[in-house]
Design a protein around this nucleic acid. Structure first.
Length: 622
RNA sequence: GCCCUCGUAGCUCAGUGGAUAGAGCGACCGCCUCCUAAGCGGUAGGUCGCAGGUUCGAUUCCUGCCUUGGGCGCCA
């Protein structure tokens, strides 16, 4: 025991010693809470006690961090620096007094004042190695947060079911799935939802595209609009319909075009001036109207077929990517149940709607948006915004404590209007979080892969998975904060080499499995191993890393930041590899061998728990 | 033009109101008769965009400027 703490012999402290009546510290706190087995919590309690003694009545947010520099101990607190102003005393002096008043603890080897007034703690060896037992006891649950009782909804991907998912959707999928899993692991009840935009114009365009391809196959060729869906999957759906129903839906091309505004002359480069673009849109809408008129009830068959087909494809794609949803929520159902009309009426009742130019406008500017927005057009149809309000109102009705929307960054202009609408409806907009996912650029051999949705030349998620594999996809997507643009290096993700960070982490897991195989002993005896032999700097460092896993989980969940977990796993794997190279695990000495294997198994467990949250597999051999 | 976002090592990126700002890749020098070299050790590499301000302390917070990307439809 260090001389600075030698005079601090009152342990356990008597409550009245560190909890004066005027103090805010809870004197009735049971003593055993001072004996938290988690070192960080324990240190915070010790500091709280010292604070109550040094500065009765003073309240402070006890912060403990793990210093990067090992000479700064295992934990450091800036408590004295925080108090300097209030106490009008130098931080170092306060720190010295705090250290003097610190209750002694078997978990603390040394507490010393350093630098500007930091208090550096060095833990007793046993306090570090005990984490191995905790990990081996809780196994798959190590790091799991206590149930919060909170219901959280994460809505993500929600791509229009009008074609294959592309690499941008893949990022949203990887982020959303990992975030949902992370939030669940942190103790929340999580519902994963996909909002299906099955009511809008885009779906009509897809149905029209399919029908036009179908007609083509019968020789009834209507020039295919450049702003319709170009992909081959449209032809496939057309062929399916033809196979199932023959010529049932055929109408003469001339009859279709009769009432439709003409399209502008075709431009091979696909670049149309603004007025021609508008003309194209009018032409497309005309075709949709004509299709609806001619097909009548049968239009809905084509529409439904396209929707079902694309949704199934999308779902299959996501499942193969390890992304699952608890709920697929239909936009159309919001219209069918009258929810959209109801919510607009409700806004109207509250005086937040006014009419102008024949349309209904919501006063979103009064609720933090840049300007007011139309919710119902002059032709009586509702805007996408209207159904979005209804959808969010519905989410809140379902009783989630927290609603998280994961949107493409190009939707960021919608955040203000949606939160505005919630406020206007007297709903607690603070319960809504919108996480914006930035764009993805693919790089192959250092060169950017050009993608254009317009030209239909985008790389699909499926192609990406086929090329680099699901694990590398998930990991690479998560290696970058979601609100930052991502450069996805295909060459690196594909390389089965030491350059590839996903293999780096997985390899650590496989290595441990391999060592255990060679050991051939009984793994279930390891939790009882005596951990005394764990004493090297690397071993104790690894213990500290394992100890911080629950903190990393909690922090990452709070920040909606699964990438923090990916970085943690890379660090953990790195520390393991260093240890593995420096020291043999399968040493002759049985006691030491068991201690090391116990630590290795604990590392493997944490790698597994972390990888599972990220949706990456933990292979036993590579 | 207005709003938001970004700027950290050659490259790709973490990070934080506090101690000497980190990792991976690339470069250079080493390590397999030994538990998987998909690994490890070491060296080099920085005015944390620029200028002010708040603070005991700013790469972190605030303001301005420059820069990156995005948003500003009765589109979805």
């Amino acid at each position: 025991m260090n001389s600075e703490t030698a005079d601090c012999a009152r342990f356990p402290p008597q409550p009245e010693e560190w909890a004066p009546g005027a103090g805010r510290y809870n004197a009735s706190l049971p003593l055993r809470t001072l004996m938290s087995s988690d070192p960080k919590t324990h240190l915070a309690e010790l500091l709280q006690a010292a604070l109550a003694s040094v500065a009765p009545g003073e309240r402070a947010d006890i912060q403990l961090e793990r210093p990067r520099d090992p000479t700064h101990g295992d934990f450091a607190s800036n408590l004295a620096l925080q108090l300097a102003r209030a106490l009008k005393e130098s931080p170092r002096k306060i720190a010295e007094r705090l250290v003097r008043e610190l209750p002694t603890s078997p978990m603390v080897d040394k507490a010393e004042v350093a630098g500007a007034g930091f208090i550096n703690f060095r833990l007793a060896v046993a306090a570090k190695t005990d984490v191995v037992k905790a990990v081996l006891a809780r196994r798959d649950d190590y790091g799991r947060g206590a149930p919060t009782g909170r219901k959280v909804q994460v809505e993500f991907v929600s791509a229009n079911p009008t074609g294959p998912l592309h690499v941008g959707h893949g990022r949203g999928a990887a982020y959303g799935a990992s975030l949902a899993c992370l939030l669940a692991f942190a103790g929340n009840e999580v519902c994963r939802e996909y909002y299906v935009n099955d009511a809008g114009r885009q779906m009509d365009i897809l149905a029209l595209s399919t029908w036009l391809r179908y007609l083509e196959s019968f020789g009834e060729t209507v020039p295919f609009p450049p702003n319709a869906y170009q992909g081959d999957y449209v032809r496939e759906m057309a062929a399916q319909i033809r196979q199932a129903h023959g010529s049932l839906y055929v109408h003469p091309a001339v009859a279709i075009l009769a009432s439709v505004p003409p399209a502008p002359a075709r431009r091979e480069d696909g670049e149309y001036p603004p007025e021609e673009k508008e003309q194209l849109e009018r032409h497309l809408d005309g075709l949709i109207e004509a299709a609806k008129d001619l097909l009548g009830e049968e239009w809905m068959y084509v529409h439904q077929h396209a929707l079902t087909e694309q949704l199934a494809d999308c779902r299959e794609d996501l499942e193969a990517f390890g992304v699952h949803f608890d709920c697929w929520f239909s936009e159309r159902s919001l219209y069918d149940t009258g929810m959209v009309a109801k919510v607009v009426a409700e806004l109207e009742k509250r005086g937040h709607i006014y009419g102008q130019d024949g349309a209904k406008w919501f006063r979103s500017a009064a609720f933090g948006d840049e300007k007011d927005r139309v919710v119902q057009r002059d032709n009586g149809s509702y805007t996408y915004f209207a159904s979005d309000i209804a959808y969010h109102a519905n989410k809140f009705e379902r009783g989630f404590d927290r609603v998280i929307d994961i949107w493409g960054a190009d939707h960021h202009g919608y955040v203000a209007r949606v939160t505005g609408a919630l406020k206007a409806l007297d709903l607690d907009a603070d319960r809504l979080d919108v996480a914006l996912v930035q764009f993805v650029s693919l790089f192959r051999d250092g060169a950017k892969v050009s993608m254009s949705t317009r030209a239909g030349s985008y790389v699909t998620l499926r192609e990406l998975r086929d090329e680099v594999g699901g694990d590398a996809c998930r990991f690479f997507y998560l290696l970058r904060k979601q609100d930052q643009a991502l450069d996805f290096d295909l060459t690196l993700a594909k390389s089965e080499s030491n350059d590839n960070p996903v293999y780096y982490v997985q390899y650590a897991h496989a290595r441990i499995c391999s060592v255990l195989d060679q050991w051939g002993g009984k793994e279930d005896e390891l939790p009882e191993a005596n951990l005394k032999p764990l004493a090297s700097e690397r071993e104790l460092g690894l213990c500290g890393r394992l100890q911080s896993f629950p903190e990393v989980v909690a922090q990452a969940a709070g920040d909606f930041a699964p990438h923090a977990l990916a970085f943690y796993l890379r660090d953990l794997a790195g520390e393991f590899h260093s240890w593995y190279n420096a020291e043999r695990l399968l040493v002759d000495d049985d006691r030491q061998r068991r201690a090391r294997l116990a630590l290795a198994v604990a590392v493997r467990q944490v790698l597994r728990n972390g990888l599972r949250i990220l949706g990456v597999s933990a292979p036993e051999a590579m």
